[in-house]
């Protein structure tokens, strides 16, 4: 059966399964061909759908192209052996963030033509940002390819002896513990902020109190009366 990444076998299974089999080039050139084909397929779709995200006129279509881009980026990550990151990308971005995007875009009915009207006015500022981002990407790539240690890192994106998740947990919870928890704190603050901003106390709304309803007995809520003809009942 196919094995993506590594599967750690429990002790009880036959020893043939205990050896971790990684997808390597040594398994034959055909496998590499399939990987290469998959890479070009995913990469081409990522680029095409990213381009369509910014060019499509319908905002809902734009979000859907974005989702396709996320999805194929996850595929690329599986190819380089970062399956944990790939799954997180799908769960967090496709499963949660993009759903909310789609939600908002569907509800708001944004008119993109109106947004494009100010294009000429903001073009200069936009260009500055674009150049800045491009420079940052260049710098990142420059740092990536420079130096002996970095080259070694590039050769070993995932360690051979331990699984992806362990490797990540190992550095996240030791070396980068404070940064990691700081990131968590930022998210918590953002969450509380969103709640504070949208929460409002509505007066006059009748909320259901389930325990109170359950505690209510017939004798609390009803009373027997014998009204005379035409007299009615005092409430």
């Amino acid at each position: 059966m196919a094995t993506v990444g590594k599967a750690q076998s429990p002790r009880t299974l036959p020893p043939t399964h205990l050896t971790v089999k990684r997808r390597t080039d040594s398994e034959g050139p055909q496998k590499t061909v399939i990987q290469a084909l998959a890479f070009y397929l995913f990469a081409a779709i990522v680029i095409a759908s990213a381009a369509l995200t910014i060019t499509s006129r319908n905002p809902v279509h734009a979000v859907l192209w974005l989702i396709l881009a996320f999805f194929n980026a996850a595929g690329l990550m599986v190819l380089v052996g970062a399956e944990f990151i790939a799954m997180l990308l799908v769960i967090v971005y496709v499963g949660a963030v993009a759903v909310l995007f789609l939600f908002v875009v569907m509800m708001l009915n944004i008119d993109f033509a109106e947004l494009r009207a100010g294009f000429a006015r903001y073009a200069a500022i936009g260009a500055v940002f674009a150049v800045g981002l491009a420079a940052e990407i260049m710098l990142a790539f420059g740092a990536w390819s420079a130096g002996k240690i970095e080259l070694a890192r590039r050769a070993a994106p995932t360690p051979d002896t331990i699984s992806n998740i362990q490797a990540l947990g190992m550095v996240l919870y030791t070396r980068y513990l404070f940064v990691f928890e700081g990131a968590g704190l930022v998210l918590l603050v953002a969450m509380i902020g969103a709640i504070v901003l949208t929460h409002r106390e509505r007066s006059g709304s009748r909320k259901q109190n389930i325990s109170r309803q359950n505690a209510r007995r017939p004798q609390d809520a009803t009373r027997n009366t014998q009204p005379t003809v035409g007299a009615g009942v005092e409430l």
Binding site: M1, T3, V4, G5, K6, V90, I91, V94, G95, N164
Partner: peptide, 18 residues
Amino acid sequence: ALADINVGLLYVLAASSL
């Protein structure tokens, strides 16, 4: 299993969120 991957449970979560 068709794909006995080491992130199987995350895959389930990811796919069901789709």
